[in-house]
Design a protein around this nucleic acid. Structure first.
Length: 128
DNA sequence: GTTGAGCGTT
């Protein structure tokens, strides 16, 4: 599904628009609406406490805290995914700027970045 | 044992 979105963006100029309307809304905002980028985390915050804090705003489907490969400790930011967008936005409105375990949180909508796709556009040769 | 803007895989 998300792969389809990335692929469709690449071949948008080569395919009729009716193909994309099924997958893309009228906005191709780079931010995913149901996933939040949560920064300003204290280094002792783990995923379960983060999920527990955000679960009161809605159903949390996934929590990811980025850890440093060398030190093994938190890098101070992570991602919280909700089932619905309004839950995510309400969680953002409710938690952004608020202190969590001693540190103020900086919450925004996550940018769609997926590990695995090289995002290589070898040729844009639509002409010939 | 420390530090503090940020958009990803420990």
């Amino acid at each position: 599904m998300f792969l389809l979105q990335s692929i469709s963006k690449r071949f948008r100029s080569q395919l009729p628009p009716s193909v994309f309307r099924r997958f893309l809304s009228d906005t191709d905002s780079p931010a995913s609406n149901s996933k939040l980028f949560v920064a300003g985390l204290s280094w002792k915050v783990d995923e379960k406490s983060l999920k527990d804090a955000f679960s009161c705003f809605g159903e949390v489907t996934g929590v990811q805290i980025m850890y440093d490969k060398n030190s093994g400790r938190s890098r101070g930011f992570g991602f919280v995914e909700f089932v619905k967008e309004d839950e995510a936005s309400s969680a953002k409105n409710g938690m952004d700027g608020k202190a969590f375990l001693g540190r103020p949180l900086s919450i925004s909508f996550a940018v769609d970045k997926v590990r695995g796709l090289p995002l290589i556009i070898p040729r844009v040769s639509t002409s010939r």
